[in-house]
């Protein structure tokens, strides 16, 4: 564990807490893409298949449970909670994410560390996470003004993978024979997809203005 990876995990946890706060405090999920939440639930379930077979550390197991439970709870809220579900932007959240799932799985069948069920699903979860934010970014562009908590949620979600890239660079330099090509390349693609969001987020912070993504 290094400082970059801890910062990444804490930033990721923070993004989830901010989203839970937004939904709980405002009893609303307006501006949140349910499709992105569903993709993240798939990402965590596909990535943590080793949850019950390999024990790495209490921290590792605890965080995996938090990520799986929170993503499923948010999807449940957006689908079935009588109050929250009414504020879902159904007509704006129309990204056809089936292709993202299909393409990620097809790529995982081709490019993986080992051709085993666990490793193929791990690679699938890495590729899917790289593109999982797309429905959310499209929704932000369509829904005009973005409320503060939603903007902070997306910002922390994008920042966490940037910390992971620093972690991989650090491990590559300090651990002999450390390579993490699949996660590294996907992580760069994932973080790059946030580039324009980060730009407009910075502008809104500098001008102390409302965050607005151009349509």
């Amino acid at each position: 564990m290094n400082i970059f990876r801890l910062a990444g995990d804490m930033t990721h946890l923070l993004s989830i807490l901010v989203l839970l706060l937004k939904i709980y405090a405002t009893k609303s999920c307006s501006g949140i893409s349910r499709k992105t939440q569903e993709l993240y639930a798939i990402v965590f379930m596909a990535r943590y298949l080793d949850l019950f077979t390999d024990f790495i550390s209490v921290y590792n197991t605890f965080m995996k449970l938090i990520f799986i439970a929170s993503s499923l709870a948010i999807v449940w809220c957006m689908r079935f909670h009588p109050v929250v579900r009414r504020s879902y932007d159904r007509e704006l959240d129309t990204f056809r994410y089936f292709f993202l799932v299909g393409a990620s799985f097809a790529l995982a069948l081709v490019w993986h560390d080992k051709f085993t069920l666990q490793e193929v699903f791990w690679a699938f979860s890495i590729y899917l996470e790289a593109v999982a934010i797309l429905p959310q970014l499209v929704l932000l562009q369509r829904s005009g003004n973005v409320d503060n908590l939603t903007g902070q949620y997306v910002f922390f979600l994008g920042a966490y993978r940037a910390f992971y890239i620093l972690n991989w660079i650090y491990r590559y330099m300090t651990e002999p024979r450390f390579t993490r090509w699949i996660a590294g390349i996907s992580g760069v693609v994932q973080t790059a997809l946030y580039a324009d969001f980060f730009y407009y987020y910075f502008i809104s912070w500098k001008n102390n203005s409302k965050l607005k993504l151009p349509a």
Binding site: D54, I56, N60, M63, F67, D113, W122
Partner: peptide, 10 residues
């Protein structure tokens, strides 16, 4: 902790 396939990260 460490895992043989290196998947020790979240």
């Amino acid at each position: 902790g460490y895992k043989e396939n290196g998947k020790d990260e979240l």
